[in-house]
């Protein structure tokens, strides 16, 4: 018989750095999950991405067992890394802190595709570009779909 799912926990954790401090402790502990078991597994599985901010979705079952999937770093984080912008712009519409190229937008879109609700690169790129604009990051040049 399939185990009954009792809940999902969504976290953003640095690779290799899960520990029982909050929010991990209270989020998992309140559902009766063995926190240390999760931390050991997550850390072992993310040794190659140590220090990277990784979204993780934990499925908790009625017998307090769990499974989890680790996703690719959030788009906003990837944009920050690409631009090396130390801080986002406090005033996104007036003061642009950094810019990215459409090629970089495409790279991020492709990396993030497995986690997005689309199989269409153009849609994914539009999402990434939208996030960039919200963060005060300019996308330089014309969008590839404007050139035709």
């Amino acid at each position: 018989m399939a185990k009954e799912v009792t809940g999902f926990i969504r976290l953003q954790v640095k690779g290799g750095a899960a520990n029982p401090s909050p929010p991990i402790g209270p989020a998992l502990g309140s559902k009766g999950v063995n926190i240390m078991e999760f931390c050991k597994q997550f850390n072992a599985r993310t040794q190659d991405r140590a220090g990277k901010i990784l979204p993780v979705v934990i499925t908790v079952y009625s017998d307090k067992s769990f499974e989890f999937i680790v996703k690719t770093p959030p788009v906003a984080i990837q944009l920050m890394e690409v631009t090396k912008a130390k801080k986002g712009s406090a005033e996104p519409n007036r003061k642009k802190v950094a810019s990215v190229t459409w090629q970089q937008v495409e790279d991020i879109a492709k990396e993030k595709m497995p986690d997005l609700n689309t199989n269409n690169v153009t849609s994914a790129m539009r999402m990434v570009a939208g996030t960039a604009r919200s963060m005060g990051i300019t996308v330089s040049g014309n969008a590839p779909w404007d050139n035709n």
Binding site: R10, L11, Q12, V13, P23, P74, A76, T131, M135
Partner: peptide, 22 residues
Amino acid sequence: TESLAILSAFLFQDGFECIEER
């Protein structure tokens, strides 16, 4: 939700170590 996703990135820059999303 979309804005919170970006805010998370800024919070990590400010030194927060881990975030729970609901």
